[in-house]
């Protein structure tokens, strides 16, 4: 059913945005993390989105409804490169010059990203609600 299709697309976006918020909160939580299992400071992570097309049946269905596609998280990438060096000679991870390598995470950037993710989530909830209201209106025809 097509109205349920809208719901599925909205649902995929809700899932993707939830993953994004997860990654952002992981970045915020690890702003000061200097040790990781992989060694070195925490690397900032970000999500890569891709439009979802699952198999032939989905493709066929998509082609009949103007290429409406959901979204999914393709992968989560870690930012490569050195972190910022902070002078803190008392820190156990400080190098010979007394500098500690900390993750290169900007609080402002993460908060902006968080707001965008939240906004996008809300927008998709609105589209799902619209679909639901449409379905209920359609059922009113029979009354």
């Amino acid at each position: 059913m097509d109205i349920l299709g809208v719901m599925n697309i909205g649902y995929s976006a809700l899932k993707a945005q939830t993953t994004r918020v997860n990654v952002i909160s992981s970045n915020l939580a690890n702003m000061e993390t200097t040790r990781t299992p992989e060694g070195g400071p925490y690397q900032r992570k970000s999500v890569i989105f891709t439009s979802s097309s699952r198999g032939f049946a989905q493709e066929l269905e998509n082609s009949t409804r103007q290429q409406a596609e959901g979204v999914e998280v393709q992968r989560i990438v870690s930012q490569q490169g050195a972190g910022k060096m902070v002078y803190d000679p008392g820190h156990p991870d400080a190098n010979a010059e007394g500098y500690v390598e900390k993750p290169d995470i900007s609080l402002v950037e993460e908060m902006t990203d968080l707001m965008k993710a939240k906004g996008s989530y809300e927008a998709n909830v609105t589209s799902i609600k619209a679909a639901q209201r449409m379905a209920i209106k359609a059922l009113e025809i029979g009354r």
Binding site: L4, G10, Y11, L14, K15, T18, A135, L139, G142, R143
Partner: peptide, 24 residues
């Protein structure tokens, strides 16, 4: 997730309403 639950409940609600209409 919460949205999993809400969406399945919404779908169930719509299909139940449809069922009631078909029955009527």
């Amino acid at each position: 997730d919460l949205h999993d639950v809400m969406i399945s409940m919404e779908k169930a609600d719509i299909s139940l309403r449809l069922l009631v209409q078909v029955r009527n």
